[in-house]
């Protein structure tokens, strides 16, 4: 998908904000994007492992402080900070699991999506789909006429797997750009009489837009846009 950024002279800005941005902030962004995107996004493996490390360190610190019995106030504040981060992490992982459960057959057969999962998520998707497969087989499918026994197809005359739920990429999502973007292709279909179909779209920094997820998918993946 064609996308070019019109950002000039903002690299310094970016650098500053990168330095000032904590992992919690990044996790919050990942969480919001994941919540808002219809399909599963790439697992933020580096970020997640850093956050997990920090959580573990913090848990040890809190443990230490509370057994030392000094200053219950700051211990409780540290605990609150820890709880907030834990909430973000859990919620992030849960949304991903929900998406995997919903679209597991689709993810399993789509390499691009499959590669977005973490190792644990892959294990989960594999076990989950084989269990579901087996369950459906035993309870329903084996009792149906021969032509209708596939989990993936309505009947054997279906050419494609037409019983696999797929995420709807033409959902409209709300996004905010971090920089001035231009040349966003709104429709990737062949140009026809509708004037807007080939029109390039621009976005000012910080302005909210409701837009079709398909059109901005690449920008979300490259981190230029935030969903919310």
């Amino acid at each position: 998908m064609a996308s070019s950024s019109g950002a000039e002279g903002e690299s310094l800005d970016d650098y500053d904000s990168l330095i000032a941005t904590t992992d919690v902030e990044l996790l919050k962004r990942a969480w919001r994007n994941e919540k808002a995107a219809p399909e599963i996004l790439r697992f933020e493996s580096h970020l997640i492992s850093r956050v997990k490390e920090q959580i573990q360190l913090m848990e040890e610190t809190v443990e230490e402080k509370s057994s030392g019995g000094n200053d219950p106030l700051s211990v409780s504040l540290y605990q609150m900070d820890l709880d907030r981060t834990l909430f973000l992490l859990r919620s992030y992982l849960r949304i991903r699991i929900q998406k995997i459960e919903k679209y597991m057959f689709h993810i399993l057969k789509t390499e691009e999506l499959w590669n977005r999962l973490s190792k644990d998520e892959k294990d989960f998707a594999r076990t989950c789909s084989s269990d579901l497969n087996q369950h459906l087989e035993e309870t329903v499918l084996s009792k149906l006429p021969e032509n209708y026994q596939s989990v993936l197809k309505q009947s054997i005359i279906s050419e494609e797997d037409d019983m696999v739920p797929e995420p709807q990429l033409d959902t409209f999502v709300l996004c905010r750009s971090k920089e001035y973007l231009t040349g966003i292709q709104l429709e990737d279909g062949p140009a026809d009489d509708r004037q807007f179909s080939s029109k390039l779209f621009e976005m000012e920094r910080g302005v909210l837009h409701f837009i079709c997820y398909k059109s901005i998918k690449a920008l979300v993946e490259s981190g230029k846009l935030d969903l919310l």
Partner: peptide, 23 residues
């Protein structure tokens, strides 16, 4: 003809209220 909607300065709570409808 609306393919994308630009909303200036809408707040978080307002976004949440109109999101289901607009979407």
């Amino acid at each position: 003809r609306t393919i994308a909607v630009k909303i200036k300065n809408l707040s978080a709570m307002e976004v949440n209220i109109v999101r289901p409808f607009i979407g």
